[in-house]
């Protein structure tokens, strides 16, 4: 192990780590918001809303993230903006992908709430939207926290895939170092260690939050 070499690259690893954190956080937050819309769409009464949202989830869960990243970077973003931008493409891909998984988490969570809760809300004159907003979601979200946490951990690891479009996150710098210095162990073990520290701390944080919400 050449620790001096790792030290030389440490600034770039740090920068990459921050970008990894940034695009993962953006991906999970935006994905959780979009996922809610999609989950509600999948439970809609009309097929015209249900069909596209079902198709969305099936597409993003049924195709590799790598393929999605390439399509979005070389196809979708240039079509929208004329040229691509690796940050926009990376965040968009992670958002769209995690939205599909978040939608499933919402759906399972919402369906886990006893239907008597909805009926009681309706019987008090609440609309579908009010019942969701004030009665169903507040209860469902608590049950969803562990699943969202897991999705976030998966997303942090999967964000490494955007290194293929040269988004300068952690994995991109590991690959750059490998190529520039003709090394294998130093760059990839360093990257692995940093990913592990990120997901391990997240896991700990998650257990703490779960314990908090249960004792409430």
């Amino acid at each position: 192990m050449n620790f001096e070499l790792i030290y030389e690259w440490s600034d770039l690893f740090l920068k990459g780590t921050l970008i990894t954190i940034g695009i993962s956080v953006a991906g999970i937050l935006l994905g959780a918001m979009l996922g809610l819309v999609i989950a509600l769409g999948r439970m809609a009464r009309t097929v015209y809303v249900r069909w596209p949202t079902d198709a969305y989830v099936n597409f993003f869960r049924g195709t590799p993230l790598l393929v999605q990243v390439l399509i979005i970077h070389f196809g979708v973003v240039p079509a929208l903006y004329g040229s691509s931008n690796v940050y926009i493409a990376a965040i968009l891909a992670l958002t769209l992908n995690s939205a599909a998984y978040c939608a499933e988490i919402y759906r399972a969570g919402i369906q886990s709430i006893d239907k008597g809760q909805r009926e009681a809300s309706y019987s008090l004159g609440m609309t579908h939207f009010q019942a969701m907003r004030f009665v169903i979601l507040p209860q469902a979200v608590k049950r969803m926290i562990p699943a969202f946490g897991n999705e976030f951990i998966v997303l942090v690891k999967d964000s490494s895939i955007v290194s293929v479009i040269a988004a300068p996150e952690l994995m991109y710098w590991a690959r750059s170092m490998g190529a520039a210095a003709y090394k294998v162990w130093e760059p990839y073990l360093t990257a692995a260690l940093i990913y592990f520290i990120l997901t391990y701390s997240l896991n700990k944080l998650l257990i703490y939050i779960e314990r908090k919400t249960v004792t409430q």
Partner: peptide, 17 residues
């Protein structure tokens, strides 16, 4: 929903929030 505002319902299983 407006009609239901005029009709209270009490369930066997309470269904409190």
């Amino acid at each position: 929903p407006k009609l239901r505002m005029e009709m209270g319902m009490v369930f066997q299983q309470f269904n409190l929030f």
